[in-house]
């Protein structure tokens, strides 16, 4: 049987999509409230810092960032093909590299908190 990396790529995409479906609207809403001048308590420095300082908070932020980025990267790859850009190999390398870099940076930043 031919080996394919598709199940791994797709399961991460599906996990990211599900997490984004469940969490992204409410997270965007928190930032929208902050933009409107009604920043929720959690987005204050003291509370967010305490949240990100806790191991479970770090795990939450890392999971959200990594899976959202992977989901967006994989779907963007397919969408660019649908928009008529047919250089799939180059597109795939760029979008997955951005997702991987973002994930690595989030690990770096979270270890500094």
């Amino acid at each position: 049987m031919a080996k394919s990396n598709k199940p791994i790529v797709w399961s991460l995409f599906a996990a990211g999509g599900t997490l984004a479906a469940l969490l992204a609207p409410v997270l965007v809403l928190l930032f929208l409230l902050a933009a409107l001048g009604h920043a929720p308590g959690l987005l204050s420095y003291a509370q967010l810092h305490a949240f990100a300082a806790h191991p479970l908070g770090k795990l939450f932020l890392l999971t959200v960032i990594a899976l959202f980025l992977w989901h967006a990267a994989h779907r963007l790859r397919v969408a660019l093909h649908d928009f008529g850009l047919r250089q799939d190999r180059i597109v795939a390398v760029i979008v997955y590299l951005v997702a991987a870099t973002g994930t690595a940076l989030s690990v770096l930043y979270l270890t500094r908190i």
């Binding site: 992204a24 930032f31 960032i65 959202f68 967006a72 990267a73 779907r75 963007l76 973002g102 940076l105």
Partner: peptide
């Protein structure tokens, strides 16, 4: 996905 990606970069 473009908007989810953009928001995630804001989060980062």
């Amino acid at each position: 996905c473009v908007f989810i990606g953009a928001f995630t970069l804001l989060l980062l």
